[in-house]
Design a protein around this nucleic acid. Structure first.
Lengths: 210, 210
DNA sequence: TCAATTATGTAACAAAAGTCACCAAAGACC
DNA sequence: GGTCTTTGGTGACTTTTGTTACATAATTGA
């Protein structure tokens, strides 16, 4: 575990903190598609992401979904911190977008380290800030952009986090992420294909130039 | 200043911290309508809200606006913290919705107090959490609700923060806050009036039962 | 192999929201 | 009082997005 920690966090955490994390943290391998956190659950620990991508979603009471943002290497889930500290239920769902390796930190250590390690404080604040900015980004998208632009951004972002210009999604899955309908997404994708920007296939989409 | 601090924050901050705040903080009276923070600015200090309401807005490159949330007594601006820590430019605009009394804290104290005072740590985390939740709320509104429902929520919330069932806004101002157009808002307001839920007048709107 | 399931394409229509144009009332200013 | 500005009302139309319905192709699996 120390190896992975040093590789991912060595330049921001001091050695003593890395040692502590290795002692109290538990390693978890999470296969693609697994649910990490469900809306309404209480959270038991805070995840430090070592590798892979986690997708964070919001859902309304009718079951309508919306993708908020992705978490990548070096990120942690601020929403989770929020829940841990406040002892409230999760407001979001987190799903492994790819196979994920992470280290779970017990909640009580968070508080302790915040007082003890300057680097941990910076990390926690940084996470909050990054998350707030991601949320702003999400708001910008929904409020200011049309579905065609949102779709393009979605395809770009998904290709980026998966480091693969071929997206293995169905139109229906994309529609869920963007909180739209399958027909609308198919329509817009077809338009992008006609513009020569993507290539559509059953179960996957190839990005040519976006 | 000590009086106001004790009244507003006495039950969450220990006496020593209150003392420190009083020493390094500067009191500011901000009249309704003043801009507190503009997008793109660097932030000089962190505001502790004593009384009044601050409106936090987002703007896209085309100048389209959107109301994100209100800050009330006991709140601070997490977005500001975010900017202070990271030395980045503000992503949001803050405007005094009513006359506002606040205490500005120099940035360097934030870090120091986070290590020193447990109550300050809790306060800062709480602020972040509240703000993240407000942002989620904003996203829910835009993503999952139609304009008529968003308008009703807007009227309710505005009446609540101003503690006044008569809103002193023009249809155009509401349209800006909701990122819609005056015509659309007039139309929906008229519908609400016909349902007996509100009463429309020039320059103000009376809420009857929402 | 062949029926069932899943994914996609598309036309036709409906609903929500935005735009344009113009009018009229209220208030401001001289 | 009379003109100008601001604010609100409304009809007609467009654009965007969502819905319904149905067709067809690919894949699965008994």
């Amino acid at each position: 575990m120390i190896q992975e920690l040093k590789a991912g966090y060595g330049d921001q955490f001091e050695a003593a903190l890395i040692q502590e994390i290795a002692q109290v943290g538990t390693f978890r391998d999470v296969p693609e598609g697994s649910k990490l956190i469900e809306i309404g659950e209480y959270i038991k620990g805070m995840p430090l992401l070592i590798s892979g991508v986690i997708k964070v979603m919001r859902e309304d009471p009718d079951g309508d979904e919306l993708l908020l943002y992705y978490l990548e290497q070096g990120d942690t889930c601020s929403m989770t911190m929020s829940c841990c500290m406040g002892q409230t239920r999760s407001e979001i769902r987190a799903v492994a977008e790819t196979d994920v390796r992470l280290i779970m930190i017990p909640v009580r250590k968070m508080e302790e380290w915040t007082a003890k390690y300057r680097s941990w404080r910076n990390f926690v604040f940084d996470s909050y800030n990054t998350r707030l900015n991601e949320m702003l980004h999400a708001i910008d998208s929904i409020a200011f952009l049309n579905m065609d632009e949102r779709l393009i951004n979605y395809l770009r972002e998904k290709a980026r986090v998966n480091q693969d210009n071929t997206l293995h999604s169905t139109h229906q899955q994309i529609a869920y992420d963007l909180h739209s309908s399958r027909v609308v997404i198919s329509r817009l994708l077809k338009k992008l294909e006609n513009l020569g920007k993507i290539e559509l296939h059953r179960n996957h989409i190839e990005i040519l130039e976006l």
